[in-house]
């Protein structure tokens, strides 16, 4: 089970109303390589990996939910008091008609989240390589959002999230090395 902590992993400061940027950030909220996909992918894979690497999947999955909450905070604040006209101008007219000011798990193009974004092959190496790829794709997505954003405060938080992808990618690479050490172990006994 999980216990809620009434704080963010990293401070998120939003100084300007900017629904267009909120729409771009949605890519990491409900997109194919976003934090929801990451959290669900790792949380689900942890059941069928060797015990030695369960902790990596469990703890990174948990951290991804805290990243999701940071992105939600950005989207919420960037759109909170925006008028329907402002939302429409930002390309969120269709979003407003369907969801009002609510957040939704969708990508920057408004495509709703789907579990086909994630994989579970039941083969530890196949799954860990998928996870490494997912981290690198998320890192790249943060790069493109940072490139297109003029908001220094938001970019500060996005840079933190991008760096976390680096660290997670390394931990998954290490998990592969840990499993490689298991080669021929049965013969030793």
């Amino acid at each position: 089970m999980w216990v809620y902590e009434k704080k963010l992993l990293y401070p998120v400061e939003v100084k300007e109303c900017n629904p267009k940027l909120a729409r771009y950030i949605a890519e990491q909220y409900g997109g194919a390589d976003g934090e929801l996909a990451a959290a669900l992918r790792y949380m689900n894979q942890r059941y069928t990996v060797p015990d030695k690497v369960i902790g990596v999947l469990n703890d990174i999955a948990t951290e991804e939910f805290s990243h999701l909450e940071m992105l939600a905070t950005m989207i919420y604040k960037l759109t909170k008091d925006a008028t329907p006209e402002q939302l429409e101008e930002a390309g969120l007219g269709a979003h407003y008609v369907n969801h009002g000011h609510a957040l939704f798990y969708e990508n920057a193009g408004g495509v709703p989240f789907t579990t086909t974004y994630i994989q579970a092959k039941g083969d530890p190496i196949a799954d860990l390589y998928e996870d490494i790829a997912a981290e690198e794709k998320a890192r790249a997505t943060y790069q493109w959002i940072i490139d297109i954003s003029d908001d220094a405060w938001i970019n500060d938080s996005l840079k933190f999230l991008r760096e976390r992808e680096n660290v997670h990618s390394l931990r998954f690479r290490e998990a592969v090395e840990v499993l490689k050490d298991e080669r021929d172990r049965k013969k030793i006994f």
């Binding site: 704080k7 992993l9 401070p11 690497v53 990596v56 703890d59 660290v167 931990r171 290490e174 998990a175």
Partner: peptide, 25 residues
């Protein structure tokens, strides 16, 4: 309040990092 919370966030983050590290080490 924000400053004191940041102290907690910093200390908790060190725990997050070391937990992930010790998982593979």
């Amino acid at each position: 309040r924000r400053d004191m919370l940041k102290n907690v966030q910093q200390a908790d983050f060190v725990v997050v990092e070391l937990t992930l590290y010790t998982n593979t080490h």
